[in-house]
Nucleic acid binder design. Structure first.
Length: 271
DNA sequence: CCGGACGCCTGTCGGC
DNA sequence: TGCCGACAGGCGTCCG
């Protein structure tokens, strides 16, 4: 579900409601997420002040006075800010209630998400430690991708979806950025040249930036903190457009499985 | 180390 | 109408 733009949209929406506020309590209705929510989580969080909230890849990191909280939305997760009095709906697994009575409510139908308190600095946590660079910050460019792709045989689409290579690029934005860059998703990563990787790196930044500006992509489950959808779905160039005309050449967009994931591309423009 | 397959879950949709 | 398979925005784990 949520890729970098959706997590960034969520971050920007919830941060003003949470930062510098004291946590009143955590109410958990369903502990069985991807990893079960640890039993001591409620007592760890109660009474703590939220020092900061940031995003690392598709993770949200909440800095507390003691330790920090890692949140991941999996495939179907969303976070909303609601009044504490709003009755929870289906799959609303937990509420983080803050001092002014508002609460951060996590919904996740498929329960692939994460909600983990950790004592150590989040950057040392095993889930965070080995993540690759942020695509919208320094250290990510065509030279970097070209270097990392050296001698690698996997399809370039799977390569850019590997969070150890670069964070935040999921199935939608992988198809979108390869379409923009004119690169066939099935090309072995090690056979894409440096010029094409320059184009791919800038395409990734373009696509992610456009989506953030539109509030992310809502296909099924994703909503912003206020419950409204993001509007990037209508601007997708390739993803979900099987059989529709390529906007450059008119050839029907094709869908193929690459690495068990549906991939959308123009068989004429993407080589 | 690398690449590919699988499983974790629930919900929805299309075909028969 | 009901059933069944395919599919869905992620990612850790296992296997060859």
């Amino acid at each position: 579900m949520p890729e970098l733009p959706e997590v960034e949209t969520t971050l920007r929406g919830i941060r003003p409601h949470l930062e510098a506020r004291r946590i009143w309590e955590l109410q958990v209705r369903e502990r069985r997420l991807r990893y079960p929510i640890a039993d001591e989580t409620e007592e760890r969080l109660a009474g703590q002040t939220i020092l900061n909230l940031l995003r690392r890849g598709k993770y949200l990191l909440m800095g507390l006075e003691q330790g920090s909280l890692l949140i991941h939305l999996g495939m179907s997760g969303s976070l909303r800010i609601v009044p504490e009095t709003t009755p929870p709906g289906p799959h609303d697994h937990l509420d983080l209630v803050v001092e002014d009575g508002r609460c951060l409510r996590m919904r996740d139908p498929r329960r692939f998400g994460l909600f983990i308190w950790t004592a150590e600095p989040p950057e040392d946590h095993p889930l965070i430690r080995d993540l690759g660079p942020e695509p919208l910050e320094g250290g990510f460019n065509g030279d970097y991708l070209f270097f990392r792709a050296h001698n690698r045989q996997l399809p370039v689409k799977a390569f850019i979806m590997d969070a150890k290579v670069v964070v935040g690029v999921g199935n939608i934005y992988a198809s979108e950025s390869l379409f923009l860059a004119g690169i066939h998703p099935n090309r072995p990563a090690g056979q894409v040249n440096a010029v094409q990787y320059d184009l791919l790196a800038s395409s990734i930044r373009t696509v992610l930036g456009e989506s953030i500006a539109a509030g992310g992509t809502s296909l099924r489950d994703f909503v912003r903190e206020d419950g409204h959808p993001g509007y990037f779905a209508r601007k997708l160039r390739a993803y979900g457009r099987e059989g529709q005309a390529c906007q450059h050449c008119g050839t029907p967009i094709r869908r193929e499985k690459i690495g068990q994931r549906s991939s959308f591309f123009c068989p004429n423009c993407q080589v």
